[in-house]
Design a protein around this nucleic acid. Structure first.
Lengths: 242, 242
DNA sequence: GCAAAAGTGTTTCCGATACACCCATGA
DNA sequence: TCATGGGTGTATCGGAAACACTTTTGC
């Protein structure tokens, strides 16, 4: 009961973490950052392991709001659809030995517990190119098959986020908010094949897509390709019916 | 970045809330509690609105662990499968006027922000009967069609939890961890019909269930019914394959 | 023997799958 | 004119849906 324990425990910290998937013809990638370490005055050069973009939330900020802010601040990515998929709260999740040195360098109590709420998103690499914020370290896309050891429990968060993306795409097909503004049907099919890791028949795939009311054809075609230019489509969130 | 904001914000509070669904022949119900108010020394009789069982987590406790503890403490329910489905973190979620009086009576800062991580579960009403803990108020099952206004944002959490249950039952059929130890196929069908709000054909339903490897028939039949006694089944979590 | 729910197979239908050729463009 | 990916229709198959009667028990 709120009454009983209000005084028995300390307050905790909450963060958000973003698992941003990006895709292009070469496959699926994830956005990782390397923290720029503040000079701690001792001349030490402590490296943090790569990690997912994330940060503590501000005191008057909603969770989704925080995720959007963090993403914008760290990577300059704006206006991308984010979906919450899980909260990670293991009491020791930020206390691994590999992370303590770095946390200590921030003059933070490394034992302080942090619970994180994780979001995932999906962008087309041609539409979005992240830039590290001035105060941040580096930002880069890393191929999904080539993920290094990450800080904290970020490897777990990442795979859990990929799982969430797959289920989203599989069951509810509303996940078109995850798509770029304009796309060809071949690009869409390639994305499905990448995420779900299976092949689709071109004609059958198109039959299915074309009966989705929220995929609308544009009066526009691909340009500058050396083959028959493809019809462009776009996702219209207003057309969601079922 | 952790560095930048570590000092710009206060610590927050984290709670867990449990949406426990119970079912029997009369339909689906949800477990609600009425908080027993501590005497605040002023003789005031401030009533809280009914709410979901929940509490702040302890400083060294995992989220799921906390949910299980809270449920046990408040309702004496033990050993039931809980699944996390969403974190609710609106900055004002516990600051509604209707809740302030009550929070104040607990000598708590009513403005203190609380983020909650919500879990849902499902039990058979014949297997589990909750009892309020000594220090708690009352605990009761309330029909899903008859939910009153709840404290905080608990109405929203409740419907979101029901949504999660439905999706769980629909897509992954692994949700048998949510079932009672022993059940007949008719009971199982009735549950599906209640949650998914549609009718199934008896023969087709049984065909589907019988090819699920994790539903195993017991050497046991219903007793004391005035009709042909039904075969009892049980869920074997080890048999999950796909 | 009657009421009440358990249990059981077959046919029908619709949606998913498999499959091959012509088209528009840039070089 | 050729290389490249875009775009289209139909036949087949398999799983989902529809459907009715016999069985076992308690009273």
């Amino acid at each position: 009961m709120y009454f009983r324990f209000m005084m028995e425990h300390d307050a905790l910290h909450i963060s958000v973490d973003c698992v941003i998937f990006g895709y292009d013809d070469n496959g699926l990638k994830v956005l990782l950052i390397n923290q720029q370490l503040p000079n701690n005055g001792l001349g030490l050069d402590i490296k943090s392991q790569p990690q997912l973009p994330g940060d503590l939330i501000l005191i008057n900020e909603g969770l989704l709001e925080a995720a959007k802010r963090v993403l914008l601040e760290l990577t300059q990515l704006n206006g991308i659809y984010l979906k919450q998929f899980h909260a990670f709260g293991d009491p020791t999740r930020v206390q691994d030995a590999k992370d303590r040195a770095w946390l200590q360098s921030l003059r933070t109590l490394p034992d302080q517990r942090v619970i994180t709420v994780a979001y995932f998103g999906l962008v087309s690499l041609q539409d979005f190119s992240p830039k590290p914020a001035s105060f941040a370290g580096s930002v880069h896309w890393v191929d999904l098959n080539d993920i290094p050891a990450l800080a904290f429990d970020h490897n777990e968060i990442l795979s859990s986020g990929f799982e969430a993306l797959r289920e989203q795409l599989e069951s509810h097909h509303i996940s078109f908010e995850l798509l770029p503004k304009k796309f060809t049907l071949s690009q869409l099919q390639a994305l499905y094949e990448l995420v779900l890791d299976k092949k689709f028949d071109k004609r059958n795939f198109r039959k299915n897509v074309k009966r989705m009311p929220h995929v609308v054809p544009l009066n526009e075609k691909q340009k500058g390709v050396m083959h028959k230019p493809a019809q462009l489509f776009s996702f219209n969130p207003n057309e969601i019916s079922e």
